[in-house]
Amino acid sequence: MAKVHVSMTVNGDAVEGLVEPRTLLIHFIRENLLLTGAHIGCDTSHCGACTVDLDGKSVKSCTLFAVQAEGASITTIEGMAAPDGTLHALQEGFRMMHGLQCGFCTPGMILRAHRLLLENPDPSEEEIRFGIAGNMCRCTGYQNIVKAIQYAAAKINGVPFQEAAE
């Protein structure tokens, strides 16, 4: 079957490639673009490890074809830190609050939290938990992921982070 030309913007760079229509976006990102931060977890749109930001939406890139992303603007975990290597507030939050153990879910968690904070800059704990409900972590029990997102929200909003009493 004929390959299809696709072009999109990924982390600010114009990229293109020839893909079969059945090529999933996650495979295009990982195998054609060699950006391996977004992970393939369940491959069934449940776990969220493949989450990337696409035209202002958090999407599971295992359940989109690359051809559907024609012309889209995409951000992956590789696009989160500043060019000089300074971590994004969310990356810093995950580091400071121990928001990861094995790290497999982390790129998806951070990209989902990124969109969540853009839409709701000062979310409650409940809103954070509902907002990341499409991302599974099998290590942390989510407690420190929630703290990491609260840390990032505080940093972005320029207010001191206060850890809630447990």
Binding site: G48, K57, K60, L64, F130, G134
Partner: peptide, 9 residues
Amino acid sequence: IADPQVRYV
């Protein structure tokens, strides 16, 4: 329905 990512799409 589903989760935030699925609801965007």
